[in-house]
């Protein structure tokens, strides 16, 4: 599902002529198979978020190659990446990233609107997914009227609505209490088993990392150790 070859990345900081190069990733190789749950752990500044953003197409790597579902996305422009993301990748963020002026149902409907799905079909799909994430009682609630766990379930529903084969989760339980965290992890496992969706989860929470088929650790921009099987 995800194949990363020799991906390196550095940030350029400071003003012109006084720029400093901050290296973040060094020759990362990674392969995530279809239907796998892989967790990526590491300390702050280790480069795990940067790697996720490269996989998600938000950042172009300085060097190396990224392929998702057999398609190499390195070197694509922003429009191509956006279209690819819409069709192939669902994204779950630590702080949910819901549009506050839209209701839960409208937030979930957004990818369907971008995809050009007819209104009637959209309505049906939203109703179905709300049932799946057990939020059928809250379609007209705004994010501010929902608990953290409910908001994250709205975000998961939004990520799932177009049936993407891959979901990238950036600290998905970072804003949740332990009970809600457990509920969410159970939901992730259910989705993986039932729909065969591939998950790549970034976390520094060992409990979250433990639900993965494989655990990868990243330190100082390099893959350090692997629990389970080899990264490539």
């Amino acid at each position: 599902m995800i194949t990363i070859k020799q991906v390196s990345h550095h940030y350029t900081m400071g003003k012109k002529a006084k720029e400093t190069i901050v290296p973040v990733l060094h020759g990362i190789d990674l392969h995530v198979g279809k239907g796998e749950i892989v967790s990526l752990i590491g300390k702050s500044g280790s480069g795990k978020s940067t790697l996720l953003h490269i996989i998600g197409g938000f950042i172009q790597p300085t060097s190396g190659e990224v392929a998702i579902n057999g398609t190499t996305i390195t070197g694509w422009n922003e429009g191509q990446l956006a279209d690819f993301r819409l069709q192939h990748i669902g994204y779950i963020f630590q702080n949910f990233q819901l549009i506050p002026s839209m209701t839960a149902a409208q937030n979930i409907e957004l990818p369907l609107i971008l995809n050009g799905t007819p209104k009637q079909e959209r309505k049906q799909k939203v109703e179905d997914i709300l049932r799946q994430v057990e939020l059928e009682a809250f379609p007209e609630h705004y994010p501010s009227e929902l608990s953290g766990g409910q908001q994250q379930r709205v975000a998961i529903a939004r990520a799932l609505i177009l049936d993407p084969p891959l979901i990238l989760a950036d600290e998905p339980t970072g804003s949740l209490d332990s009970d809600t965290e457990a509920e969410l992890l159970s939901l992730i496992r259910k989705l993986n088993k039932q729909a065969g969706i591939t998950f790549l989860i970034i976390t520094h929470d060992q409990e979250v990392a433990a639900i993965a088929d494989r655990q990868l650790e990243i330190k100082d921009g390099q893959m350090l150790k692997v629990k389970g099987v080899m990264p490539v």
Partner: peptide, 15 residues
Amino acid sequence: PDIGIMKAIGANPKT
């Protein structure tokens, strides 16, 4: 922020 969210979930810049 809304534009950022839309782009993150796959809104084309043209849209």
